[in-house]
Amino acid sequence: MVEPYDRRTVEVGDGHHLHVEQSGNPDGVPVIVLHGGPGGGCSPYMRRFFDPAHYRAILFDQRGCGRSRPHAEVTANTTAHLIADIEHLRRLLGVERAMLFGGSWGATLALAYAQAHPERVAAMALRGVFLGRKSELDWFYGGGAAQFFPDRWAEFQAPIPVEERGDMIAAYHRRLFSGDPAQEARFALPWLIWENALAGLEIAGPGHAPAEYARAFARLENHYFAHGCFLEDGQLLRDRPRIEHIPAVIVQGRYDMVCPPISAWELADGWDRAELRLVPASGHALSEPRIGAELVRAMDGFRDIRP
């Protein structure tokens, strides 16, 4: 495992302090890695997709996530804040242009940042595309995915009274932001389990997680989803012309139940510099072998790109 050569805490305003790390070649091609969730945080596993002799991998925990502080905080925590944080880190670290690497919510954020600052992006590797649209949230929290996983959906609904189940995001929101940390932690776990259970085609995610992690993940994800990811519905597709000059590889599991392939297809359709790779026998998780292999291949294929 490649170890970081730099770890630091960066103040970005509004009381937020981000955990930031760099690994690989300090003089290499910079890649800004955007984790999923919102709320997931980065992990050592995310360093393995970048040849350490060629790439300078920049990982950070987004506001409220992982080792960033304050933990699980949603104040001053919107998509616009995260875009500004990426810009702050880019300037702080002396990066003129960078590649972006992100999956799921990380792909959402990569697209949003690239559309805000297209001159700062050299290329993109995206996985498990999520465009932050109401239709995608309705699929996962409104009964679409439940048609394939009725048992898991029943477990997800069980803590919520029947009369509130018409809007599961709102129902969980009331409990994840009740002001009672014990109640918030109790409702965070089923929120986390529902997503993790559907993430891998063959290997389900963990059924249990530390209460602190589960609470942060569930609160941040729910906060963003309750506010439509702080994007206009369809914004990322509407504004795609701003980034169509940027080369991109889109790695999408054929059987992704969290972020169905239609979003990746719509994103790639008509984008001449984007290559969509539908990965057989694969779901959503970064850890799936075929997904990981395709991401490594994508990054190896970007070797000729210079910042």
Results as ranks from 00 to 15, higher is better:
G228R: 09
A158V: 13
I32C: 08
P70E: 04
A285P: 04
G94C: 06
P52A: 10
Q252D: 05
L126G: 07
R47N: 06
G24E: 00
S23D: 04
I305D: 14
P150H: 09
E212I: 15
R47L: 05
L236F: 06
G292S: 12
V251N: 10
L93I: 02
L236S: 02
G143I: 00
M299A: 06
G128N: 13
Y213M: 09
R97Y: 12
R63H: 10
A211P: 00
E87V: 03
A188I: 08
R215N: 15
P190D: 11
G270H: 02
D272Y: 09
D6V: 00
I32Y: 09
E212R: 15
R127Y: 12
M299G: 01
R67N: 10
L237M: 03
V162Q: 13
L231N: 01
M299Q: 06
E266Y: 13
A76C: 03
A57E: 01
V33Y: 13
R63F: 12
S178L: 05
W191M: 04
W105V: 06
A264N: 01
G234K: 02
A182D: 14
F130G: 05
D304W: 13
L201E: 02
R67C: 00
E163T: 00
T79L: 15
P261V: 11
L82S: 06
H17F: 09
A218Q: 01
Y113A: 05
A123K: 04
G132R: 03
L109W: 09
F225A: 14
L89R: 05
E244A: 11
H208I: 04
D304I: 00
P4L: 05
A112V: 01
